Computed example of a mutant assay.
Amino acid sequence: MPRMGRVVLPNYPHHVVQRGHNRQVVFAAEDDYRRYLGDLRELKELFGVKVYAYCLMTNHVHLLLAPGDSVAGLGQLMKALAARATRYRNRLEGRSGTLWESRYKSSVVQTDSYLLACSRYIELNPVRARMTAEAGDYPWSSYRERTGKDAGSDWLDTDPCFLALGCDQLKRRERYEQFVKQAVPYEEIRLIREALQRGQLTGSNRFIDEIERITGLRIEQRGQGRPRIDARK
């Protein structure tokens, strides 16, 4: 089956993953992580892209991004991030060549049902990889900033679902922490992972129908069910 063209929509969140070329290490030292996050913070403003969540793993990155009215901003951001990291590594190691896979993966995310679930999926990557026991133990994800554990770090954009968790910042942080600590259903993980791998949509059948009408594309391989967002209770 031919690969479906990437679906990018203005003002919708997108779960994005970019991997190192041949799964090579892209973050070998703490300075590598810091430099990438500094570039992300700068370039998101330049290209008008909101950053809701992130996790930098040894050989890949997970990002939850929302372009503005211009969908081109998402691709421009990813291209600039990759180029800066590649130039830095090549200069550091006296080498040439690519650092990243040429094509990043992305999936449009349904805001009301899946945005918090996708954030949790991203920030729990180190736990699933058995690198840390808890999300808060890992320094290179958005979890610590989102929950107020990194003082002075406030560049993340606040997504509407996080805002809906409570009437003030303290309550929202508490409820999000509770949400991340809940047992995550396997079906939720499978749906998010498969939507990303196939370049399809992370959402319900109704959401898929809506996006099909907007884009005029037929989107197959629909996932079933929706995550339980108990943090809102």
Rank of each mutant, 00 (worst) to 15 (best):
W100K: 10
S106T: 13
Y88M: 11
G5A: 15
G75D: 04
M78F: 10
R128G: 00
T202N: 12
R173M: 01
A28S: 05
V127G: 04
S113N: 14
Q197I: 08
Y36L: 05
D154T: 12
P10H: 05
A164I: 02
T215L: 09
L92I: 00
S102A: 15
L196F: 06
D230E: 11
E212D: 00
E93D: 01
N205G: 13
K181C: 10
D112S: 13
C118N: 09
R198L: 09
E212Y: 00
G94E: 07
R130L: 03
E45S: 13
P139N: 12
N22W: 09
T58I: 10
D137N: 15
G152A: 01
E177Y: 00
E145R: 13
L43I: 00
H15D: 07
E174H: 09
G68N: 03
E188L: 01
R3L: 10
W140M: 12
K79E: 14
L217I: 00
I219L: 15
F179A: 10
E93L: 12
A164F: 02
D157Y: 07
K50L: 11
P160D: 02
H15F: 13
Y104V: 03
L196H: 04
Q169H: 11
T202P: 10
G136H: 01
T132A: 14
M78S: 03
Q24R: 12
I211G: 08
I211D: 08
S96T: 03
L201C: 08
Y138D: 06
A85Q: 15
I219Y: 05
C118D: 00
D137E: 15
Y143C: 09
T86F: 12
